[in-house]
Design a protein around this nucleic acid. Sequence first.
DNA 1: TAGAGTGATGTAATCGATTTCATAAACGCG
DNA 2: CGCGTTTATGAAATCGATTACATCACTCTA
Lengths: 335, 335
Amino acid sequence: MPTIQDVARRAHVSTATVSRVLSTPEVVSEATRERVMAAVEALGYEPNYAAKSLRTLRTAKIVVTVPDISNPFFSSVIRGAEEAAQGAGYSVLLGDTRHSTEREEQYAGMLRRKEADGLIFLGHRLPDTLAELIGRQGAKAPVVNGCEFSPDLGVSSAHIDNAAAATEAMDLLYGLGHRTIGVITGPLASPLSRDRLAGVWTAAARHGAEAGLRIATGDFSVESGEREAESLLAAAKEPTALFCFSDEMAMGALAAARQRGRRCPDDLSLVGFDDIRFARYLEPALTTVSQPMEDLGRTAVALLLDILRGGQDAPRSVTLPHRLVVRGSTGLARR
Amino acid sequence: MPTIQDVARRAHVSTATVSRVLSTPEVVSEATRERVMAAVEALGYEPNYAAKSLRTLRTAKIVVTVPDISNPFFSSVIRGAEEAAQGAGYSVLLGDTRHSTEREEQYAGMLRRKEADGLIFLGHRLPDTLAELIGRQGAKAPVVNGCEFSPDLGVSSAHIDNAAAATEAMDLLYGLGHRTIGVITGPLASPLSRDRLAGVWTAAARHGAEAGLRIATGDFSVESGEREAESLLAAAKEPTALFCFSDEMAMGALAAARQRGRRCPDDLSLVGFDDIRFARYLEPALTTVSQPMEDLGRTAVALLLDILRGGQDAPRSVTLPHRLVVRGSTGLARR
DNA sequence: TAGAGTGATGTAATCGATTTCATAAACGCG
DNA sequence: CGCGTTTATGAAATCGATTACATCACTCTA
């Protein structure tokens, strides 16, 4: 428990000098510097975080809120974010909101209490607290949206071109001869789900195949994928391909197809979204839209740090590249 | 940015009274209380976190360090930890150490700087910083090990009985007639890997089948599972079953088996460990030791909070129940 | 030589909250 | 009524760091 007073006493200097040696050593003479550092080391001194934060008005913390940390997509995004934050001298306060507005508001309150310098939310909903802050500060509000792009929110964001990615996935299926295609979306409250769905319609229109689309709404979970695939595959005009807006849902859909005796890709082609770590180890290996998840996290942090540095006058939107990865789950349409 | 001074001025009381209204309202008269609360609301006042933390010597933060947040086992543990922490008024600082000693030490430094009140590490390695702290404070050091049990570390821990779980998994395989069994362990620096391996040997001895064991060392990743399974399946005396110390490795092993034309469970039975969310959706659905991952996180947090409350005189070890979940990946031995 | 500029350091204020100690008023009991 | 106890509140200290402003010593230039 040594304080700066102990160091100053031991080194026969003032606390201001100790502070300077630690923060701006170039303004302190070498002899003094050495004396101070010897005292610091002898005492094992480290500045008290709260005292420093109170004086400097800086917490060196960012809050990252996420609907579910155990979702493999989000956990990878957070991995990238944590790395970028740490590299820049920031720590990540993790907020698993479990899709709860109340929890979202609680974590947003951290900005107000000066408990964190900035916040990244990995979801589509902007808590009221943050909306007010943005209303007041505009683009200077230290808030970034990760993975979603909602221009009306007035916040910076990092994301892929979800519409184009979905169009590509659908083009692949149409190119394989599929005409009746099931699409399992995420929740349509989410702009990224809506963008992907728009991309689906774009491709369908391009191929004159709108009538063959079968849309079902999932929630990105493996369970909803299974459930919605069951419904789609039970239909009178059964799809020969499924496009799921997450790999998790694709895994659930794959299980449902198997349950009905459908072979993938012979009877049913399957496309996922995300390219989570296990996608290539499935049987068959999953064709999927690959998102640079860790890069999304890193980019979100970079945007936030730029805001904190005063470098942004308007909300910025960074679109990262996606990639359609064709593996064994897609094949020629049979019928 | 109102301060407590603004509230006190507006309510015509001292700052001490404002503080009391917020922290110990029962010692303040109702009339005064109402006046203060009206001022608080009118001004939108919220106490400055750093000032409060500096005075109270409490951060209401715990650090959780994890080797890889995107590993589905760890992300689930962290989910439980975050929930328990939040419920108790604490926030989680996430430290993804990426298996780096240096990062582990950096996060451990948060305790020294009074940047966090306590720390949970989800790994087997105790950073020097923490070892020193424990050397000094013993069981009162606010440090908990999650998922591992190393009695010599002198820290409290939450874990399952890894040896018993492994024994059960092996018993299942022996019961199905398997005699040549491959085991893909985690890194043997880790006590949980060693415990599981001990359990493996216990079962092998019980069945007089030590000679039929084929041990390979993985690192819990899907890639190492694939790689080690390839080696094991390339052996002259090929195992009829594989027991992998994580579901991830089991998925890699499954892919390797398929690559070699082995059918699971007909040619090769497979047992994993963890029961991650996708285990049941694999083909075949994975037989695995189910760990209560979120409960592990919750329990670790409960242990830490107990330490912080001064409630522990000696390191405690909480063993949570595991369960062997038999699914389609295990079947009778063919040869 | 005198004055201006630079480098180095110290004193005291500052950040904003909580809590200790003191004091006054009210209450209850003998 | 007097005294002891309880309730309520305020002033000032405290938490531990940073930094603004002042001062001194030294150097350089006109």
